[in-house]
Each structure stands twice: as C-alpha cells, then as structure tokens.
Design a protein around this nucleic acid. Sequence first.
DNA 1: CTGTAGATCGTCT
DNA 2: GACGATCTACAGA
Length: 205
Amino acid sequence: MVIEKEFYLRDDVVKIARQVLGKYIFTFRDGLYCGGIITEAEAYKGIHDRASHAFNGRRTPRTEVMFAEGGVAYVYLCYGVHSMFNIVTNRKDIPDAVLIRGIFPTHGISHMLLHAGRDCKAGELANGPGKVTKALGIHYSQSGISLTDNNLSEGIHKIWLEDRKIKVTNSDIQVTTRVGVQYSGADALRPYRFILKKKPVSDLF
DNA sequence: CTGTAGATCGTCT
DNA sequence: GACGATCTACAGA
C-alpha cells in the first residue's frame, strides 16, 4: 500500500522517523523502478532543533520546503557532492523532516549499481544518506516534489513510500544520537536516529 | 582493521 | 569567503 498523506501530516516527527523503518521507498524514472527497505532514519524537529536547517525559524530559498505541509521531499546538496533526501512532515509552517540515511535494496538493483558506478554488495549500495540518493537516482533539483500525489509529478520522476507489512518491533530498532551534528550542542545528544538491526532475509519476506 | 585528506559547489554571511 | 545532516581512496599498522 502506498503511504498516504495522513501518515506524514502527524505531529510527532520522532515517531515517524521510527515508523519509516521497514517501509519501502521507491523511485520511478527512465521507465524503471528502484527501491528498497528503509533501514536508517533521523528526525529533525522544528525550529528549536539546533541540528536542523530550519533552526530558529530560518526560511531561505533552500529551507522553505521544510515549512510546507507534510508529504513532500526536502533534498539538498551536501559538501558540494551529495544529495540528501528528507521527508517533510507535520502541518504547514512546522518544519519537521526525516532524513533517510540507509536502505536495503530490493528492486532494480542492477539499475542502482549503474547509478552507483561501481560494483558492491546489495547491503553496501545504499548504507549512507548520500549513497541512498545516488542509488535511487534522486537529485537535489527534485526538492519539493510530492511523495503522495504522484499523478502531479507526471512522467519525469516519482518518489513514494509503501507499507508492505514488514513487522518491526522495538527490539528490532537501535536508537542513537544523530550523525554529523556535533555543532548543535545539547540537541546533538537527542536520541533521534533509528537503525533497523540486521535480520535474516527470510524474516523480511 | 583504523585514520584521514581531498573532492566540490550551492548556500548563506 | 567559509562551510557542510558525506564518501572514497589510500596509507599505515
């Protein structure tokens, strides 16, 4: 089932970051599907989160999409080389987002390997936020596109999430602090990073 | 295995 | 003009 807008409109971004683990993310471009199971995500929570680009209510051309209604993509360029994919959540004007930091590829793996431009094991193909977008073919120019109104992003490039009923319990999830946000003081210590522990493939399908 | 330098450019000051 | 919610290659142990 495609995950609909109501999922993203809820107001607890930390809970949503936890809940996207085990969900599938798909892209469709050039007539081909790519996708996989989300294995790692981080929450960025509102204007009081020093780690967030929207801290202190900062609105710029780049961050404006974080203030949109939930269910759209916030994609930005990091270190001049990597696109970082986030899911915007919550109501309009509340800048919450979930950074997708890792997936386990399941669909279109050969195509993703072409995107990556090098050979590697499936588990290594998208185990990092920059690698996720590279494998899936997501580019920062797609920031702002809807994850729920796929008819409106006709033709060019589509991104969406699906729930295929993978069961994820609390004991399947490792919770840690976020990566690369040491500049954000006390907020760097918040338990906003969620990692799906490795399980036998037979448990997933 | 661990550690680190360099890449690379849009964005904000 | 400085910096970054990162990745890779490569050096050394």
